[in-house]
Amino acid sequence: MYIPPAFRDDDKESLTATIRAARLAILVTATTEGPLATNLPLLLDENEGEHGVIYGHVAKANPHWRVPPVGEALAMFMGPDAYVTPVWYQTKQETGKVVPTWNYVAVHAHGPIEFFEDADRLLEVVTRLTNLHEGERAAPWAVSDAPADFIQSQLKGIVGLRMPITKLEGKRKMSQNRNAADRAGVVSGLSSSARPSDREVAPLIPV
Score class of each variant (00 low, 15 high):
residue 37 A to E: 02
residue 151 I to V: 13
residue 165 I to A: 02
residue 193 S to H: 00
residue 40 L to Y: 05
residue 203 P to A: 00
residue 54 I to Y: 03
residue 36 L to H: 08
residue 4 P to T: 14
residue 143 V to E: 02
residue 164 P to Q: 00
residue 4 P to N: 08
residue 3 I to Y: 07
residue 99 V to C: 10
residue 104 Y to D: 00
residue 29 T to N: 11
residue 13 E to I: 13
residue 205 I to V: 06
residue 33 E to W: 09
residue 194 A to D: 13
residue 155 L to T: 05
residue 148 A to C: 10
residue 33 E to I: 09
residue 192 S to Y: 09
residue 103 N to M: 05
residue 106 A to N: 11
residue 87 V to H: 15
residue 137 R to Y: 10
residue 192 S to Q: 15
residue 157 G to L: 10
residue 113 I to Y: 06
residue 161 L to F: 07
residue 39 N to T: 15
residue 148 A to N: 10
residue 206 P to S: 05
residue 132 L to D: 12
residue 81 D to M: 14
residue 162 R to G: 07
residue 63 P to Y: 09
residue 17 A to C: 07
residue 170 G to T: 00
residue 55 Y to F: 13
residue 161 L to N: 02
residue 111 G to D: 01
residue 161 L to H: 01
residue 114 E to R: 12
residue 136 E to Y: 10
residue 64 H to L: 09
residue 152 Q to V: 10
residue 145 D to Q: 12
residue 32 T to G: 15
residue 67 V to Y: 04
residue 73 A to C: 12
residue 154 Q to Y: 04
residue 171 K to W: 03
residue 130 T to L: 04
residue 173 K to H: 00
residue 84 V to L: 12
residue 30 A to P: 02
residue 24 L to S: 14
residue 128 R to L: 06
residue 198 D to W: 09
residue 63 P to F: 03
residue 67 V to N: 05
residue 58 V to I: 10
residue 90 Q to N: 09
residue 6 A to I: 05
residue 138 A to C: 09
residue 71 G to V: 00
residue 44 L to Y: 03
residue 16 T to A: 08
residue 181 A to P: 11
residue 174 M to H: 01
residue 77 F to L: 13
residue 78 M to G: 12
residue 27 L to G: 04
residue 82 A to K: 04
residue 189 G to M: 08
residue 100 P to H: 03
residue 89 Y to C: 03
residue 170 G to C: 02
residue 130 T to A: 10
residue 8 R to K: 13
residue 85 T to W: 14
residue 108 H to N: 14
residue 200 E to R: 05
residue 103 N to V: 01
residue 25 A to W: 02
residue 4 P to L: 11
residue 119 A to N: 03
residue 197 S to L: 14
residue 4 P to I: 08
residue 128 R to C: 01
residue 45 D to P: 04
residue 206 P to L: 05
residue 98 V to M: 06
residue 2 Y to Q: 10
residue 177 N to M: 07
residue 30 A to H: 14
residue 181 A to D: 15
residue 206 P to A: 07
